[in-house]
Simulated assay, not measured.
Amino acid sequence: MDFANTPSFFRSGPPPGARLAMAVAASVALLVGDSYFGLMEQAREATSLALYPVQRAVNMPAQAMRHVSDFLSSQTELKQENTALRTRQLEMSAQLSRLQTLQRELDEVRKLNGIKSSYHQQAQMAETLYTGRDPFSYKIIIDKGSDANLKAGQPVVDASGLLGQVTRVQPLTAEVTLVIDKNQMVPVMVARTGQRAILYGYGGGVEIRYLPQSADIKDGDHIVTSGVDGVYPAGIPVARVTRVERNQGATFARIATAPLAGVQQTRYMLVLGDKQAPPRPPEPAPIVKKSRGGKKAAAEE
């Protein structure tokens, strides 16, 4: 290498050995001064402050990747937790619905047991199996039949009132015609006044017919069985009066009622025993009159 053309400032100064010795001495002095007197503390702080943006810039890609990974992990965990919570909520809702249904059925059975103990005649508890096939008739099929000594004509009640009566009996099942059926009639009376009447089903509801305009009946009156037919025991709640219309010129009042029993949703019911009506009294003997000739002749009835 040709050192002839080398600039003079590269060749000026002490020799390399002297420079090394000077550097070592300066380093030792700085180490001792920093160790005992903290000479480089401010320099380090200034250098650290100046290099902080560079450090942040160097660490930014790694931090960004870490944040993205944490975000994706959090999103996945949140989705899994939401799915689990939603599934749990659906399960709890279904369980709550079942518990509410069981509680309602339990309350209904308890009420029926209380009603059963209040009747002197025999009563049997039955359960609804299904409704009748005819959509224009209101009948249900229960799980008791001739095997339980059921007979046609027996009244059927639930915890709220009269449902209807047994109309057909099979070996293991029986058909119950509800009071709202269009072919069903029940002798009733107004509980407040004792006014007797006939309650007619019209296919979906019940109403009282053929009461005169002057009859003492009003909205809210409770209708109970009168017991005059020998089929239904007296005093069974049947319906409640919802509207009374007295039109000028009409012979009878128009009385709308609502059944008290759960004719469309009752599951458990009581089939009451046969009401033993007293026998009809004997007909009176014909009146006998004596004729003027001393002969007896039977008077015409």
Score class of each variant (00 low, 15 high):
3 F>L: 15
7 P>I: 08
10 F>Y: 15
10 F>H: 10
15 P>R: 14
18 A>H: 10
22 M>D: 13
24 V>P: 00
25 A>M: 12
25 A>E: 09
32 V>T: 13
32 V>Y: 11
34 D>S: 14
39 L>E: 07
44 R>Q: 04
49 L>T: 11
52 Y>G: 03
54 V>T: 11
56 R>L: 14
60 M>T: 07
62 A>S: 09
73 S>P: 00
73 S>G: 06
74 S>V: 01
78 L>W: 09
79 K>P: 00
80 Q>L: 06
82 N>Q: 13
83 T>A: 13
85 L>S: 12
91 E>F: 01
92 M>I: 01
96 L>V: 06
96 L>S: 11
96 L>P: 00
96 L>E: 08
98 R>E: 02
98 R>Y: 03
103 Q>W: 13
107 D>R: 07
112 L>I: 10
114 G>A: 05
116 K>D: 04
121 Q>W: 06
123 A>P: 01
125 M>P: 02
128 T>L: 15
129 L>Y: 08
130 Y>R: 15
132 G>T: 04
133 R>W: 07
134 D>R: 07
134 D>Q: 10
136 F>W: 08
139 K>Y: 02
140 I>M: 07
142 I>G: 01
145 G>R: 00
146 S>N: 07
146 S>H: 02
147 D>F: 03
148 A>W: 05
152 A>K: 11
153 G>M: 04
156 V>Y: 00
162 L>V: 08
164 G>I: 05
171 P>A: 13
172 L>M: 13
173 T>W: 00
173 T>H: 02
177 T>Y: 01
181 D>Q: 04
184 Q>I: 09
193 T>N: 09
195 Q>I: 07
197 A>V: 01
199 L>S: 08
203 G>A: 03
203 G>L: 06
203 G>T: 09
204 G>A: 03
206 V>T: 11
207 E>Q: 15
208 I>N: 12
209 R>D: 10
210 Y>E: 14
211 L>T: 00
212 P>E: 05
213 Q>A: 07
215 A>P: 14
221 D>F: 09
229 D>R: 14
229 D>T: 14
230 G>L: 05
233 P>E: 06
239 A>L: 07
239 A>G: 10
241 V>S: 05
244 V>E: 03
247 N>C: 01
247 N>Q: 10
256 A>I: 05
257 T>N: 11
257 T>F: 06
259 P>T: 10
260 L>C: 10
266 T>A: 06
267 R>D: 04
271 V>E: 04
271 V>R: 04
272 L>K: 05
279 P>E: 08
283 E>T: 14
287 I>C: 08
288 V>I: 15
288 V>D: 00
294 G>P: 03
295 K>Y: 02
296 K>C: 06
298 A>I: 05
298 A>R: 15
298 A>N: 12
298 A>H: 06
299 A>K: 13
299 A>L: 12
301 E>S: 10
